[in-house]
Design a protein around this nucleic acid. Structure first.
Length: 117
RNA sequence: GGAGUGGACCGGAUGGCCGCUGGCCGGGUUCCGAUGGGGCCGCCAUAUCGGCCUCGAAGAAGGGCCCCGGCGAGAGGAAAGUCCGGGCUCCGCAGGACACGGUGAUGGGUAACGCCCACCGGCCGUGAGGCCAGGGAAAGUGCAACAGAAAGCAGACCGCCUCGCGGGCCUCAAGCCCGCGCGGCAAGGGUGAAACGGUGAGGUAAGAGCUCACCAGCAGGCUGGGUGACCGGCUUGGCUAGGCAAACCCCACCGGGAGCAAGGUCAAACAGGGAGCAGUGGACAGGCCGGAGCACUCCGUUGCUGCGGCCAUCCCGCGGGUUGGUCCGGUCCGCGAUCGACUCCCGGGUAGACCGCUCGAGGGGCCGAGUAAUCGGCCCCCUAGAGAAAUGGCCAUCGCCUGCCCGAUUACCGUCGGGUAGGUACAGAACCCGGCUUACAGGUCCGCUCCGAAC
RNA sequence: UGGGGAAUAGUGUAACGGCAGCACGAGUGACUCUGGAUCACUUAGUCUAGGUUCAAAUCCUAGUUCCCCAG
């Protein structure tokens, strides 16, 4: 408890990292999110956001990104370490924090299992 | 009080916990960093010379990434659309004309504008007010479906009228009617979005600006007001000139192109060029150059010895051209390394990082000039700078709006208080400004108009 | 972010400013024992809102949606 910060190192921001995650072609999804996963050589998970213009205007897209970062921040210690997540919200889904808090760790665990196999 | 009209403004508030971005200060860690840093003296002073002291290869001074702590800051009126105009940056550039694009009454404002202000004209509205791409159709070319006789400058379908002929109305004449013909006319009918000024009188065979009066409108002259668009008056003329330029066009004015993903600095990796090191055919009887040793008593433009480099020659090997139907062979040309490993250097520069990047046609107040837009002076303030893109998440309380219920008041509409449910808009800086346009829950303030009532 | 373009029946496309067509489709009927093919008929449209014009799919202005290009 207590370590709920969101350091810049937790974020995927380089084009190469995104391409690596997409190139691994390992995904997990539910009716809220679609998540690409790829292992990294770090001791912590990282998150990258990809929010399409089809989800709404700039305000709606910022709302999605903020909630996704909040969901990652609040339970990033429970997420599997050493994994890069690229999160894409699904079209038609409603941005709401409680659903994301349930959805994100479940999808991340499923990705970790698939990648460790 | 109701209805309306024009303008200015606000765009929820407070608190708690957990976060994000960049700035300043302090600390930590790691990396970079040197014939370096700091101090004193040499008249003074210095990025510059010298001396001394001191810190420093056990890595200084200083700086960068990251981490911790503290302080204070952090979306808009449209940040939006990207429709105009500028600043800024790079590229281009003798000058002019054409083409293309844009704008369009007048006078101001402005860095500039297609914006703003004032005014003029037209249309709409009882009015306050609103709307107008509002130059030119008496430069030229063109267009007008359908209807209608005719759609642009003249013409005449029905029609009206004189005359002539024929017929009819009892025979003749007159008159009336019908038909035909030579003519005259454009008042009336009907069509259309639009039909060649309108009304009245005179006039006439019938009519007609044919004439006259008034009205509308046009052109010229004179004149008053206004900076001007324009408005007004007098007079003369001709009686009429149609619409469309957001059709081509003409006239006047404006416009070089691209855009911060502009542009610049540093610079991995890969590829390129150069140098070094080691490996990589031989022969030699040639020439040139370089430097070494020995000899000549010394010197050396001398001789000898052997070495290196370049050129030439021959053999060998490889590649290519040619001859040849094809290979071999002949002949000609080129090369004797390509290449790979390591080290160093060079240019351009990708990924990436940094700069551009927020103090600006900036905001607020007061005073002055101006009808106003706006401009000037003085004082005060500093107010986001991200980059797969920060400015948030959760919760509580209170506002505000709507619906429902209860109570009070009231002739009614309503108003006030309480409870409850729902809602609390449009929308997110991306180099920066000035505008325009579009979206928007709810609310505040001011000016003005019309109607009604009361005094 | 910047630049360019488009929008017409359900779909694909035409239309000098003057009646909005064509093909495929869908529906109905005829032909056939039935189906297909064929024939006839029907269906339904100018992205939205203003403006210019007598008249707008067309011209102008604003908006909406979609597509393409650069990096």
């Amino acid at each position: 408890m207590g370590d709920e910060r969101f350091l810049p190192a937790y974020r995927i921001r380089s084009r190469a990292d995104f391409q690596r995650a997409y190139g691994r072609r390992c995904t997990a999804s539910d009716n809220l999110l679609l998540v690409f996963g790829a292992p990294n050589d770090l001791s912590y998970p990282r998150i990258g956001l990809s929010v399409s213009r089809k989800l709404g205007n700039a305000v709606a897209r910022n709302r999605w990104k903020r909630l996704l970062r909040e969901a990652f921040r609040l339970n990033h210690r429970q997420l599997p370490a050493g994994i890069d997540l690229v999160v894409i919200p699904r079209q038609g889904a409603e941005p709401e924090l409680a659903g994301l808090l349930r959805s994100l760790p479940r999808l991340a665990d499923r990705l970790a299992w698939k990648l460790g196999k």
